[in-house]
């Protein structure tokens, strides 16, 4: 967690080359940084600004606006349960309750071992398969509690080598006191 690696820089430069203006590559570049560190760090923001000929303040504005970029520590696996109407009607609330009980954390929190973060999100655009959960780039549709348990069991018992150190909490001095962490 720090500055961008040479590989990440190369990836960002490659993406930027597709656009007439480099800063058009900002959103994918932030994903590259997030893939590298798990979160988008201030150092990465400064590096991206330099690579894309934007200012750090501009990049930080974008990175902190979109909820899919994490600025604070998150777990290795991020379980995003859709909480919008269709999913709610089809029982996403029960999934949420079950996750809270099973993982021992509240929505928006991370397990102490740094393995899971779980949050509810707005519509994932798959109402036909409600209730839906997003894990990484994979959709789990018509999800039951039983299937959810199986997913968690699978991830929980993955070998330790596949389980990096949890990212350290980034002190974010601009956060309002009492504001909810993302």
């Amino acid at each position: 967690m720090a500055h961008l690696t040479a590989e990440s820089r190369q990836r960002i430069n490659d993406i930027a080359a597709r656009y007439p203006e480099k800063r058009s590559a900002l959103l994918p570049a932030l994903y590259v940084a997030q893939e590298q560190d798990g979160i988008v760090t201030d150092e990465a923001i400064i590096d991206i600004a330099e690579l894309l000929e934007a200012t750090p303040a501009y990049v930080k504005g974008v990175a902190s606006f979109y909820t899919m970029y994490y600025r604070y520590s998150v777990g290795k696996y991020i379980l995003q349960v859709c909480g919008t109407l269709s999913c709610e009607l089809c029982g996403s609330g029960q999934l949420v309750n079950h996750l809270e009980e099973r993982l021992g954390i509240k929505e928006g929190e991370t397990t102490p071992d740094g393995r899971f973060t779980f949050e509810t999100v707005e519509c994932l655009g798959a109402c036909g398969g409600a209730p839906v959960m997003l894990l990484g780039d994979k959709y789990y549709e018509k999800l039951t509690i039983k299937q959810l348990d199986a997913i968690i069991d699978d991830l929980r018992f993955k070998p330790a080598s596949d389980h990096p150190e949890p990212p350290q909490l980034v002190p974010f001095e601009d956060k309002p006191a009492g504001a909810k962490s993302t």
């Binding site: 201030d42 400064i46 200012t55 303040a57 504005g61 309002p176 504001a179």
Partner: peptide
């Protein structure tokens, strides 16, 4: 562009990036 708009909703604020 040394100042920017950070966060969103009720956390939205003006700010600078540390070191800049």
């Amino acid at each position: 562009q040394q100042i920017g708009v950070f966060e969103r909703g009720h956390s939205q604020c003006i700010g600078t990036v540390p070191g800049h």
